[in-house]
């Protein structure tokens, strides 16, 4: 367990963190380690889909769990722990995305350029896919790359909403809570995002 391991280095800090977890215990019946086990893939996958880059996703995921570790004591239980974690992950990923966008606007570098140099995620995904043969794996990889590329072309807020709905399978209410927006805005963002994707897929096919 994290606090026990930390106790080897810094008793006072570890005790205070353990206290925080215990205080949060009435609302979260999980230790930090259990939270990590349960939600690490969810967080990593969501962040990866939003940013489209494995290294960036790793970096942001670390930030997310570090934030969870620090803020777990102040979690008030107004929403489910899952939605709370989603909210942190979306917030962090969106911030990183905006940071890239600013760099692009200044002409320094674009996220697409960065991603074109880091296509490791596609390979990783294709290896994990259920393809029967190398040819199938390649086709699936190409298909995924195309879908990811089109996802990345969506405006950030629409992208996040579409990913949470169609890939993560969250309900409209959960998305509204995680993104801290109204239900109507969620519906509109998802509808617009899907519309753009549909148009882009058609153009690509034609």
């Amino acid at each position: 367990m994290y606090p026990d391991e930390l106790a080897l280095h810094d008793d006072k800090s570890a005790v205070s963190q353990r206290g925080a977890l215990e205080r949060a215990g009435s609302r979260v019946d999980l230790t930090f380690e259990e939270l990590f086990e349960r939600y690490s893939s969810m967080v990593f996958s969501l962040v990866y889909q939003i940013l489209g880059d494995r290294e960036e996703a790793l970096d942001v995921s670390q930030d997310v769990f570090f934030t969870i570790y620090r803020k777990i004591g102040s979690f008030r239980g107004e929403s489910s722990i899952k939605t709370w974690i989603y909210r942190i992950a979306v917030h962090r990923a969106a911030n990183r995305c905006r940071w890239w966008s600013r760099l692009r606007r200044r002409g320094t570098v674009s996220l697409e350029e960065h991603l074109s140099r880091n296509s490791e995620g596609d390979i990783y995904r294709s290896l994990r896919s259920d393809a029967q043969s190398p040819e199938d794996a390649l086709l699936i990889q190409e298909e995924h790359r195309e879908v990811e590329r089109m996802l990345l072309q969506l405006p950030l807020q629409q992208r996040v909403a579409v990913i949470m709905k169609d890939i993560e399978g969250l309900s409209y209410e959960e998305i509204a809570e995680a993104m801290q927006i109204s239900l109507g805005t969620v519906k509109s963002r998802i509808a617009r995002g899907r519309e753009v994707l549909k148009r882009n897929f058609r153009e690509a096919m034609s």
């Binding site: 893939s41 969810m42 990593f44 996958s45 990866y48 889909q49 996703a57 995620g121 990783y124 995904r125 994990r128 699936i140 298909e143 995924h144 879908v147 990811e148 996802l151 579409v162 990913i163 169609d166 890939i167 993560e168 994707l197």
Partner: peptide, 8 residues
């Protein structure tokens, strides 16, 4: 989009 299953 669903085909882009979760990345572990």
């Amino acid at each position: 989009l669903q085909a882009l299953h979760r990345v572990a």
